[in-house]
Design a protein around this nucleic acid. Sequence first.
DNA 1: CGCCAGGGCCATA
DNA 2: TATGGCCATGGC
Length: 216
Amino acid sequence: MDNKLDLIHIYNKLLNHYGELNWWPADTPYEVMVGAILTQNTAWSNVEKAIANFSGRLSPELIETLPIPELQEIIRPSGFYKQKALYLKNFTEWYRQYGYSVESVCQKPLSQLRKELLDIRGVGFETADSILLYAFSYPTFVVDAYTKRLLERLQIDVKLNYTPIKDYFESEVQGDARLYNNYHSLIVINAKKHCNKKPICDGCPLEFDCKFRLSG
DNA sequence: CGCCAGGGCCATA
DNA sequence: TATGGCCATGGC
């Protein structure tokens, strides 16, 4: 079977239905980075509460200077708050090397930055790619639980591991940062709208049977 | 009440 | 390298 047509077809269907999204729910690049860490295995509504607890003062400087216990309290609603407080500290320490500057970070090539991010304790594949794509606009495809479920529904024969899926998307759908941003955004938006906690995919532009979920 | 959410780390075999 | 336990809150 020709999967290449499938992925492009899926993208066009979603794009036609929702339009360009260019999406990540955050006001600044640094808020994107923080959100990417806080949302690890966590409902976004809980991340919003944590972000709101910063009262508009969220900044790398604050994260660096804030005592651990106080940082834990602020982000508590996002869950796993003890780990994530350290993760935020670790990540921001890395960001300090670049003067907390998006411009400075973007001087370096994607491959090197990705390695640097993956060396940070608390930053795995998805968090690294989310930061690279949504905060720094690098052309790297983000694979998350929604992406895996989509592939399962498509019954595409790919190992459901992170790297094979990412490589698969990037090889079959050549695109820039804008397209990868849009594609992942569309997958998430559509899944939230039609594929969560509903036995049947009612009104989904992909016309999937969404009662099928990841096993294990 | 139980299940789950836009993961990642670590120990174990 | 590949599983499994663990981390924790809030919505439903």
